[in-house]
Nucleic acid binder design. Structure first.
Length: 968
RNA sequence: GCCGUCUUAGCUCAGUGGUAGAGCACUCGCUUCACACGCGAUAGGUCACAAGUUCAAAUCUUGUAGACGGCACCA
């Protein structure tokens, strides 16, 4: 059999995915077992403008490991893929393209044409991640691929909107919102990030009173102010008085409609109710009193701009102040700001306001001020709080539903639970209403229509709205919904829910997109055409989904909203568990980003190290932990892949007349110690791997598999049986030479163990394991798990090894451990005494009868692995002085005669080192055991264990000391 | 400001109330016929610091220092 000497991932990666996909292995329909339990995951839909990054690769790996593991366990498994339409991002791409290619704006081409181009853009560029996921080996059911703007998902969006509106959970109103002047749309609170700027300024502006206050009692405002706080403040102008306000956004003063002071503030009490002549305008504004004002901050007097600040807005409501909007949607000043300022950009206007105040002698001072500014998460533009008429979702009742689920069912269960559960609930508790309208053309247009008088009609369709309006001509709301509004329905909208009263009955005549066709195929009607057997829909079968795998950044944006909306509309949990992955950081320890240029492209890693190595490396990161990227770590798993490849190669090179046969591990008679040991280790590993995966401890599972395969299987088992199954017969006993069936059986066992190990590795390393599994003799269709028996041969549909507790053989493990111990001690002597590898040694062993029998049985293997030509076993040692010695656990001693080779000084040093090591431990034990509190209070078995260990140590030390003496 | 996380071997990271682990790097020795992406053998850590709880603390508590994350912010 021709097998390359080193593993080349590319070849395996090219040959299997297409076959898996076209054979339908990824679909739940592949499962033929009518009683199979289901397992489902919906992918967090990557946005169509994106390409695969390391975070995706990490999350996809985890989802695929779980999906493949459950599929192999016989679950009816669905991992549903899809993408979201990324309203703002796509809109921006299309606008840019339009500008670059045609020097046009969206307004030039109109809404309809713009949307057409956005679809074209999506068709052309929106499949990047989809293709990359195939490379990853993701076992998603492509026939159920969904896009948030598919017709069926859009129907779900409209249904949800109408229902929430009808129930009063959606409303439209004037509120202060976050406005991005670059994208010219409102943003939700979650799409705004705070950025701290050290170079901020706090401007102190002097606002003159319209008329001087009554001067009785010398209560001159500016004098008061000067006396109590800022002695250096001169009066505004001769004979007049003024208030000084502090602001970080001077340009908004053009929209001031009041100045507020704290009613308890003695400095200003007498001014309450007086008017201010607002500079640069011809308006007079009142001085009002409000508890909100902090007398300690700034000057204690606050300019109030209700249309441009959330706090001012609230205050304005309380005092019935006018709301004066002075800005346009692009961040320039509007007509209300005055002729002088109209058309100026907000920051230019700021400069100009300051300039003019200075000219008028009204600029008091400018302080440096560290400020945190809200910026648009996507474009980093400074967000403008602005009064705007928008659609909102009232969150209080939905929030309570989510909190109830957590309280009563602990759902969803977060992994890791700390800190995410608390972060999630705390966020919910402080939840504010959600701004859902966006001033974009790309997305789900809001299903609200207006008549000529501005009356609103919310309906599923234009026709329905018109009907509601009594046939009047209507125009639809121009805005679209937040992309996260449709993402929030993802758990159930992707499974066929469109909002009909009976979710199981499908709408007719709407099959406009491929996805919908697919949905119909998989979501048959509750009752078949002939009124026969009821086939459960995807929604019934797969919801709640089992687990959601995502990053911290979208717990609020998506996880919480999906939880709430699913509960509200389907009355189910969206998912049972949530795995929050950590962040893969760049080599510099900072999150990967384009601006830092510290990103690592998963595709490059696939090319360099292979998909499987990248996957198992990502799975080896502790769940939820951040990790600094380092190529060396993937290299570990590239090497592991090569090890698996070569171990298989070895087995194949020695597989004449043998084939994979699970019965060969069942028949206990005729098993050698090594066989019993590796079977025990194999089953223990399988049990532990299953346990680890069930707890989402992927890194533990990887570590178990890595060490089982490399240490137990390759370093020991293969080495132990190597002589027997290779053509080399040196040192092998005659009886096996005469019974080639025994050799064939050993070959069979090693192939079988390898085959089981490959199955356990498959979820992590799908390509390599499939490639190798198909080449093993004896594998084929007949080895598929029961639920998949009609499928073609593939490792991905075999049973995941459950592990058999009965096959765990403690005695074999202990016996093997002493053989390993013996071999390691001899190797140590050889190495430290500089024995050439080619030189054979004799090994003398003194031990009790049981151990001697054990060593006798493993004579050939010990000889092979210790490079010994003679093993002398006895009750006592009888060796020349020129021997190197060691003690084994269990009271055995060994000696390697080194006539003419021994360096006595070196041997003394070696023995002393060993004594010192054991002695350190003995000291510690003695300390503990002489502590009466320990002996009395610690569990008896702990104390007993230490006493036993102490006896052992004392014996070993005594033996070593005797050996040391003997050298002198 | 509030909430929270992290600090373990040179590096990147696991880990558990009861003798500190891995991979890589380092040192020594190997063209041992599956694999040098390998084999064998060493070396390397007062588990950030301090106090407390406990028979026992790297592990639990509190505090300190440093790194970081989330949320909220008074103009």
């Amino acid at each position: 059999m021709e097998v390359a000497k080193a593993y080349d991932p590319k070849q395996a990666e090219q040959s299997h995915y297409e076959r898996w996909e076209s054979s339908g292995f990824f679909s739940p329909e592949i499962n033929q077992d009518p009683d199979a339990p289901k397992y489902s995951i919906v992918i967090p839909p990557p946005n169509v403008t994106g390409s695969l990054h390391m975070g995706h690769a990490l999350q996809h790996t985890i989802m695929d490991v779980l999906t493949r593991w459950k599929r192999m366990q016989g679950y009816r498994t669905l991992w549903l893929p899809g993408t979201d339409h990324a309203g703002i991002s796509v809109q921006r791409k299309v606008v840019e393209q339009l500008k670059k290619d045609e020097h046009k704006t969206p307004l030039d081409i109109g809404r309809e044409e713009f949307v057409r181009r956005a679809w074209a853009w999506k068709e052309q560029y929106g499949n990047t991640i989809t293709e990359q996921m195939r490379r990853e080996g993701a076992s998603v059911d492509w026939s159920r691929h969904r896009f948030t703007m598919d017709e069926s998902l859009s129907k779900a969006v409209r249904s949800v909107f109408v229902t929430l509106y009808d129930e009063g959970w959606i409303y439209k109103g004037l509120r202060i919102v976050n406005w991005c002047p670059k994208d010219k749309t409102v943003l939700s609170d979650l799409e705004v990030k705070e950025e701290t700027r050290k170079d901020g300024k706090l401007y102190y502006l002097r606002y003159p009173l319209s008329e001087p206050p009554a001067s009785a009692g010398g209560e001159n405002a500016s004098d008061d102010q000067a006396d109590s706080r800022d002695g250096d403040l001169p009066p505004a102008h001769a004979g007049g008085s003024a208030l000084i306000v502090a602001t970080t956004r001077p340009e908004t003063m053009l929209g001031d409609t009041a100045v507020a002071v704290n009613p308890k503030d003695e400095r200003y009490k007498h001014l309450i109710g007086k008017m201010i002549a607002l500079p640069l305008t011809d308006r007079e504004i009142p001085i009002v009193a409000d508890e909100y004002v902090d007398a300690e901050f700034g000057t204690g007097a606050v300019k109030i701009t209700p249309a441009h600040d959330p706090n001012d807005y609230q205050l304005g409501q309380r005092h019935d102040l006018p709301q004066l909007l002075v800005m346009n949607d692009d961040g320039t000043m509007n007509a209300a700001a005055g002729k002088e300022f109209e058309g100026l950009d907000r920051f230019k206007a700021r400069e100009k306001v300051i300039e003019r105040f200075d000219e008028l002698g009204l600029l008091e001072k400018i302080d440096d001020y560290e400020i945190s500014l809200p910026v648009c998460e996507r474009c980093k533009t400074i967000v403008e709080p602005i009064l705007s008429d928008q659609w909102f979702v009232k969150m209080d009742e939905m929030r309570d539903m989510a909190l109830d689920l957590m309280r009563t069912e602990g759902a969803p269960h977060f992994s890791p639970q700390v800190p995410h559960e608390k972060v999630y609930t705390t966020w919910l508790e402080n939840l504010k209403d959600w701004t859902i309208s966006r001033q974009l053309w790309w997305g789900h247009q809001i299903p609200a229509w207006y008549d000529a008088d501005g009356n609103v009609f919310v309906a599923h369709t234009a026709d329905e709205a018109k009907e509601k309006a009594g046939g009047r001509e209507l125009t639809q709301d121009q805005d679209v919904l937040d992309t996260w509004f449709s993402s929030g329905l993802w758990a159930f909208s992707t499974l066929g829910w469109t909002g009909n009263a009976d979710a199981l009955v499908r709408n007719e005549g709407d099959a406009r997109t491929d996805s919908l066709t697919a949905a119909q195929e998989h979501s048959p009607q509750a009752v078949s055409a002939d009124g026969g057997v009821r086939v459960p829909s995807d929604l019934e079968t797969f919801l709640p989904t089992d687990v959601l795998v995502t990053g911290r950044d979208i717990i609020f944006l998506w996880v919480s909203r999906m939880m709430m909306l699913t509960k509200k509309f389907v009355d189910k949990k969206a998912f049972e568990d949530v795995i929050i992955t950590g962040t893969v950081l760049g080599k510099d320890g900072k999150p990967m980003s384009k601006s830092r240029n510290n990103g690592v492209d998963p595709i490059e890693m696939f090319d360099k190290f292979g998909v499987d190595a990248t996957r198992i490396y990502l799975a080896s990161i502790a769940t939820g932990a951040d990790i600094k990227w380092n190529d060396l770590l993937i290299e570990t798993y590239r090497n592991f892949a090569n090890k698996i490849w070569n171990a298989t190669r070895f087995c194949l090179l020695n597989s004449e007349r043998a084939k994979v046969d699970h019965a060969s591990l069942m028949d206990r008679s005729g098993l050698s110690l090594a066989d019993r040991w590796i079977i025990s280790r194999l089953n223990q590993t399988a049990i532990d791997v299953n346990k680890s995966l069930a707890k989402y401890e992927f890194h533990t599972a990887v570590s178990l598999l890595y060490h089982f395969f490399w240490d137990d299987f390759c370093d020991w088992y293969i080495e132990l049986v190597k002589d027997e199954i290779t053509s080399k017969r040196d040192g092998f006993s005659r009886s096996d030479e005469e019974t080639p069936e025994g050799v064939t059986l050993t070959k069979t066992r090693i192939l079988t163990i390898l085959e089981i190990a490959l199955r356990m590795l498959h979820p992590f390393m799908p390509y390599l394991t499939e490639e190798l599994w198909l080449t093993l003799p004896g594998t084929g269709k007949e080895m598929l798990a029961r639920a998949y028996k009609d499928a073609e041969a593939t490792i991905m549909l075999t049973a995941f090894p459950p592990g058999d507790a009965n096959a765990i053989d403690a005695a074999a493990e202990a016996e093997m451990q002493s053989v390993i111990d013996l071999i390691k001690k001899v190797r140590n002597i050889r190495s430290e005494m500089n024995i050439k590898p080619s030189d054979k040694v004799a090994v003398h062993v003194a031990a009790n009868a049981e151990m001697l029998a054990n060593f006798t049985a493993s004579d050939a293997q010990i000889k092979k692995l210790a490079r010994a030509d003679n093993i002398v076993l006895g009750e006592t040692l009888d060796v020349p002085k020129a021997s190197a010695k060691a003690v084994l656990s269990g009271g055995a001693e060994i000696a390697v005669p080194l006539e003419g080779l021994i360096d006595f000084d070196k041997e003394r040093e070696r023995l002393q080192n060993q004594i010192a090591k054991l002695d350190t431990e003995l000291q510690r034990l003695n300390g503990q055991l002489s502590n009466a509190d320990f002996v009395n209070k610690a569990p008896a078995e702990k104390v007993e264990a230490l006493r036993e260990r102490k006896g052992e140590l004392e014996h070993q030390i005594a033996t070593l000391k005797m050996n040391l003496e003997a050298l002198n």
